[in-house]
Computed example of a mutant assay.
Amino acid sequence: MIKLHHLNKSRSKRIIWLLEELNVKYEVVPYQRDSVTFLAPPELKSVHPLGKSPVIEDDGLIIAESGAISEYLIDKYADGQLAPARGTKEYAEYSQWLHFAESSAILPLLLKMFVAKDGCETNFLADYADLETAKVIQFFDNSLAGKRYLVADQLTGADIMMSFIAEIVKNNGELDKYKNIAAYIEQLATHPAFIRADKIELDAQA
Rank of each mutant, 00 (worst) to 15 (best):
T37E: 12
G87S: 10
A182Q: 03
F140D: 09
I62F: 09
A68M: 03
E71K: 11
D153C: 00
S46L: 11
F164M: 11
I63P: 07
K13W: 08
S143G: 09
E201N: 00
A83T: 03
Q205V: 06
A193G: 06
N171Q: 12
L18I: 03
Q154F: 02
R11E: 05
E102Y: 10
A126H: 13
G80Q: 12
Y91W: 15
D127C: 10
A40Y: 04
A189R: 14
Y184P: 01
A126E: 15
S35G: 04
E90W: 00
Q205W: 01
F194H: 15
R148N: 15
Y72Q: 06
L7V: 03
A206R: 01
D159T: 08
K170R: 13
N171S: 14
R11L: 10
E20D: 09
F194C: 12
Y94I: 01
E21S: 00
D79T: 12
K135M: 12
I185T: 01
A68N: 09
L19C: 13
A145H: 11
L202D: 03
M162H: 09
A78H: 09
F124C: 07
V136C: 09
L150W: 06
A145R: 13
K13D: 08
D58P: 07
L73I: 10
E102S: 12
N180I: 04
F38D: 14
T122Y: 15
R33Y: 05
V169G: 04
A206D: 00
I63F: 03
L39A: 14
T190Q: 15
W17E: 00
A189G: 04
